[in-house]
């Protein structure tokens, strides 16, 4: 996007100068969803809804192939076969099982942030806001990306709307609209249509996309 700003004003307000953002590579389909055209280092992306886990994996896949390490913290039932199909490099994927308490959890996540570029985390309910802020500061200084997966998969949504300890930069709300390839006893699940609502601090205007994907 190009801003038309009078030259004198532009000099006065360096705010209008283009900030240099370091991005992780993502696939073309995902790039269209995200603000600033990519996965920007130091940010928190939160995936919600029923396609959250798949979306989180597809966010990481390209960067993982290019050599970044992925730490999976507390997401114990992540389908590994699915991760492989998304293209996540398994040799650079580490599963970490953190302790439940708020302080220990944040210490663990901080240690993961130190070494890894990408994180997929499930946030425990007991996490305090101050610990969350500490983790976020660490994340911004280490230039890693944290992807929060809300595992509100069946009937138990674990955070009601506004009390989440993290202020995510981008929130991706997913709703599966339909599955294709399956037909009352025949075929198998092949493709689906997912509505993804993009909002968050870094998104000026919430947008909704309809994406067809084969995972």
């Amino acid at each position: 996007m190009k801003l038309l700003v009078p030259k004198t004003l532009a000099v006065k307000h360096s705010f209008f100068e283009k900030q240099v953002l370091e991005n992780f590579a993502v696939s073309d389909q995902i790039r269209q969803l995200l603000p600033d055209a990519g996965l920007v280092r130091g940010r928190i992306v939160r995936c919600r809804g029923d396609a959250a886990t798949s979306l989180a994996l597809s966010l990481c896949a390209r960067a993982s192939q290019q050599g970044s390490w992925l730490g999976v913290v507390g997401v114990s039932h992540l389908g590994i076969s699915s991760a492989v199909e998304h293209g996540v490099a398994l040799e650079r994927m580490v599963f970490v099982h953190p302790p439940e308490s708020s302080r220990d959890w944040s210490t663990t996540v901080a240690a993961v942030i130190d070494g890894f570029d990408l994180l997929i985390v499930a946030v425990p309910e007991a996490l305090s806001v101050s610990d969350a802020r500490r983790v976020q500061t660490r994340l911004q200084s280490r230039r890693s990306v944290m992807i929060i997966v809300d595992t509100a998969t069946l009937s138990q949504p674990n955070f009601s709307n506004n009390v989440h300890p993290f202020h995510a930069d981008v929130v991706l709300d997913t709703t599966t609209k339909s599955w294709s390839g399956i037909n009352n006893g025949a075929g198998y699940l092949q493709q689906r249509q997912v509505a993804i609502k993009v909002s968050g601090r870094r998104v000026a205007r919430a947008q909704e996309h309809l994406v067809t994907c084969s995972y």
């Binding site: 398994l90 040799e91 994927m93 580490v94 099982h97 953190p98 130190d114």
Partner: peptide, 24 residues
């Protein structure tokens, strides 16, 4: 990056015990 990740794995193993840090 790999070296850094290795160091982090070492530290996490120390912190949480070897069963809590796993590879695939």
């Amino acid at each position: 990056i790999d070296e850094m990740a290795n160091q982090a794995i070492g530290r996490l193993t120390e912190l949480l015990g070897s069963t809590a840090v796993q590879l695939v």
